[in-house]
């Protein structure tokens, strides 16, 4: 079923419990992973880049906090910095913004997903992981409307099921999977270009 998708970028949204989930997901991606991975993980505005450094140490891919107007490269993992929204530009660069919080969050998953959907259209995979709020539901809806592949972590498998539930209800995603199954899906070379 996934063969019809030709994914060029993956966006991931996570909130409560996301640190543990990403700590499992990111190291499991193969060193040859062909797409960029853009991540919003909700965190305190004051946090340092400890999380990014930890992921970078654990993952075969380069994991970095986004620099303003950075060019998106395949096989890299980009993390939204604390207290900034992350946006995808149509020229393949990344922008940051301090506009007001969306769903009480900055960075907001919706902002990343909606702007990424606008640029990548049907070539985008959106993944909603564990979380205790409803951020990401509208963003994932935008991914689906533009023809992209929508994936939500199964609420029973998530440390905090509220965010997956909200996304499932809003979007009726293509796939509801456990974290292990999401890793398996990402590892299939057929899905990502």
């Amino acid at each position: 079923m996934t063969e019809k998708w030709k994914i060029k970028a993956v966006v991931v949204g996570a909130s409560a419990g996301g640190l543990v989930a990403l700590k499992k997901l990111l190291p499991a991606l193969p060193a040859t992973f062909p797409c960029p991975v853009l991540i919003v993980q909700h965190m305190s505005p004051q946090s340092d880049n400890y999380m990014t450094r930890m992921f970078n140490n654990l993952s075969p891919l380069l994991v970095k906090e986004v620099d303003e107007k950075e060019v998106i490269l395949p096989g890299r993992v980009y993390i939204a910095p604390p207290d900034y929204h992350l946006l995808v530009e149509s020229d393949g660069t990344l922008s940051l913004s301090m506009e007001e919080k969306v769903n009480y969050s900055r960075p907001s998953i919706d902002v990343l997903f909606e702007t990424a959907a606008d640029v990548y259209g049907a070539h985008l995979m959106g993944i909603i992981l564990t979380g205790a709020n409803a951020d990401g539901a509208n963003g994932l809806f935008a991914v689906k409307r533009k023809g992209g592949l929508t994936v939500v972590q199964h609420p029973d498998d998530a440390e905090s099921p509220a965010m997956p539930r909200a996304a499932i209800e809003r979007v009726k995603p293509h796939k509801v999977l456990t974290l292990d199954e999401i890793i398996e899906l990402l590892s299939q070379s057929k899905v990502c270009l």
Binding site: L87, S95, E99
Partner: peptide, 9 residues
Amino acid sequence: YSRAHVKRR
């Protein structure tokens, strides 16, 4: 201006 930002606004 950053186009993605302007479009959202």
